[in-house]
Design a protein around this nucleic acid. Structure first.
Length: 286
DNA sequence: ATGGTCGAAAGTCGA
């Protein structure tokens, strides 16, 4: 593409063929930044939602993203949790947390960041892309079924469901994507062994009901139809990845007005030294 | 290989 903006060949400016977005629990952005930037380049990603950046906002490695052409909004309080959004197609209207999000032990954790993306064309050429509101979400783990963190997880889900209902009541045509690490495996086939998970978090009926609540609020999951029967997470321990003993817990939930035309789970990102325990989930909007 | 992990922080906790 010529730098001047003069387009050769076809007379009209090239039309933007939708957007490629992804969500990825990166498990420390400072440790993983080179791998994340390489992923953005290799897979031509316009917008990336990150979870578990594991750093304060002021510690986020902005420079490599800026050099690669991305703006970043980050929300990190300490060495735990933390979420961010990187975009090369516009980024504004940043919200840290959603209304009514519960606290854990008196702290409002960094588990949700929202922003409007997709209103500016990449590189300033072509048509404007189609804006949507993207939420990068890191649902609480829950730890154990009888742990206070589990009740917190369910309350967090309920607050998100209520917020989602409110957004769609305010504007039924709103294009909203709720993406991230949901820490729930909704189907038995989403874990490598239901026997192993008996009595554990991530597969319990209340957790699955909480995730269904997001669907019932109007946000349908859009990646499974394009990428069936795949995991998105493998524990570092117990040779889980070589044995392919994983879980599917990273999802994209889209509002009724948001069309999604494709999705891909990038299993190769779990390979080699320096991998996150989660892999990216890519989705495309037309 | 018969037991196998990371990351951030700080002398341990969370996933």
């Amino acid at each position: 593409m010529p730098a001047s903006g003069q387009v050769t060949g076809c007379a009209a400016p090239h039309s933007v063929e939708g957007m490629r977005l992804a969500t990825w629990n990166v498990n420390s952005i400072r440790t993983r930044v080179d791998r994340v930037i390489a992923f953005l380049n290799d897979f031509d990603i316009d917008v990336l939602a990150m979870q578990e950046i594991k750093c304060r906002t002021d510690q986020f490695p902005l420079l490599p993203f800026e050099e690669a052409g991305y703006e970043v909004a980050a929300h990190g309080l300490n060495q735990w949790n933390g979420v961010a959004i990187a975009s090369r197609v516009g980024l504004d209207g940043v919200q840290l947390g959603f209304p009514g999000v519960p606290e854990y032990e008196g702290v409002s954790e960094a588990r949700a960041i929202g922003a409007r993306v997709g209103f500016a064309p990449q590189g300033g050429e072509g048509e404007l892309a189609d804006a949507l509101t993207l939420w990068s979400l890191y649902v609480p783990n829950g730890r154990e079924l009888d742990h206070p963190h589990y009740a917190y997880k369910l309350a967090w889900f309920e607050a998100l469901r209520a917020a989602g209902i409110g957004w769609l009541q305010a504007d039924g045509d709103a294009k909203i994507a709720l993406v991230g690490d949901w820490n729930v495996a909704p189907l038995d086939g989403d874990v490598w062994s239901m026997d192993f998970f008996a009595g554990k978090t991530h597969v319990s009926e209340p957790e699955r009901a909480a995730l269904r609540g997001i669907e019932e609020a109007g946000f349908r999951e859009v990646t499974r139809e394009f990428a069936p029967d795949q995991y998105t997470y493998w524990d570092y321990q117990q040779l889980r990845f070589p044995r392919n003993e994983g879980m599917r817990i990273d999802f994209v939930h889209a509002s009724p007005a948001l069309s999604v035309s494709g999705a891909e789970i990038v299993r190769n990102e779990r390979k080699g030294k320096g991998a996150s325990d989660h892999v990216p989930v890519i989705f495309e909007v037309p």
